[in-house]
Design a protein around this nucleic acid. Structure first.
Lengths: 207, 207
DNA sequence: ATAACATCGTTACATATGTAACGCTGTATT
DNA sequence: AATACAGCGTTACATATGTAACGATGTTAT
């Protein structure tokens, strides 16, 4: 099993796992590549090819065992131990995201939020404690935080990003609509809502 | 100039336009493909190739005129007239998005928000009026809404989606972590924050 | 026990996307 | 006015990604 998968593949694996979890909740024990493909909006061949990447083997005429496949994808995607995540920028969007992720992925828990408004420090929002921005280094070190979510306004994003990289961030989920400049070994995942909306409008208009 | 561009290309054009707007605010009149490429995180060749799609021509040794390029990209990406957008699901995330888009893209304005909690009807949030879900057909017809943002919980997303398609939605920006089933002529743009976070963590871990 | 069948794993192919090379063009300089 | 040069537009190439075809495999039913 290769230790590195492509961006697209990782995205699909994450999606498969979520779909499989839903199936498990509905007491579904096994699933065929066809069905999983339909739910994920891809072809059955794509699913089988992705399973190869994970190194998981199904059984002809039986399909994939839901529970053990979830386990296998987890071993591939997740770190061996639960990971601590931080969020910077406790505005409307930051709070919404804290709420969104609260309890959603136990292995990827947001344990600290930072804001440059000092009055927010000490507050607990959706189970997450707030700190001042200057506390980033110590809190990162204490919790071994490597993954961060940036939800500050665009004009502060680069500045915050630099602080985070210095503090040891490796993976950044960036909601600010700017291209962050980072060292090559850092991974930035951009969520650009403006672009997404414009794409929805554009392709909705031209079928 | 081709009337249809690829998904990726449209995403980059949207990004270029935003970067160009920033430049314009800083009174920058013209820009080279190199600089625009650097800001967007792509190669110069990519920028020039994308300009071909838009049908915009620069001038050797002078580069691209910022103002007229913004205009050209707008003509390519935007509808001839400003478009009305709706949002469904006025929870934490919905409100954050209403605030985020408030005044950001004048040609793509969120004019109506819907929620199944009747107490929200009549409220105005970030300049956007709230309605009950059952009012979707009439409000869509009145405002000729074709683009919608879905921010309802996962278990209600498909149901809401069906209503929206019936009401005439063509482009859907979906924040719910489920694969929506829609007719072929409808375009769904998924923003999957869970997957994005998992990707950030995965690639941060494996450089 | 054996044969038929459905589904899997894998390899080979097709398409989409990005990168680089190259000649062209217009400006600026002497 | 002629020449040098920086940057553009385009074409050709390389890589990445997705699709489909095909043989292998295990289960089930006779």
């Amino acid at each position: 099993m290769p230790l590195l998968a492509s961006d697209r593949t990782v995205g699909r694996l994450s999606l498969y796992r979520r779909l499989l979890s839903h199936l498990l909740q509905e007491k579904v024990r096994s699933v065929f590549s066809h069905r999983l493909a339909e739910a994920a909006g891809v072809t059955a061949a794509q699913v089988r090819r992705d399973m190869m990447v994970v190194g998981y083997n199904g059984i002809p005429t039986k399909g994939y065992d839901v529970e053990s496949l979830i386990e296998s994808i987890g071993q591939f995607l997740d770190a061996p131990d639960p990971e601590a995540v931080a969020l910077v920028g406790v505005g409307n969007l930051g709070r919404a995201i804290l709420s969104y992720f609260d309890g959603r992925r136990p292995n990827l828990k947001i344990v600290a939020a930072f804001d440059n408004d000092p009055s927010k420090a000490g507050q607990v929002i959706s189970g997450c404690r707030c700190y001042a921005v200057r506390q980033i280094p110590e809190v990162f070190a204490e919790n071994e935080i490597a993954t961060v979510i940036i939800t500050v306004p665009a004009d502060q994003a680069q500045e915050v990003c630099d602080l985070l990289v210095d503090a040891g961030a490796k993976g950044i989920l960036n909601f600010a609509p700017v291209g962050l400049r980072v060292p090559a070994y850092i991974h930035v995942e951009n969520v650009d809502m403006t672009t997404s909306l414009e794409k929805a409008a554009y392709f909705g208009r031209r079928p």
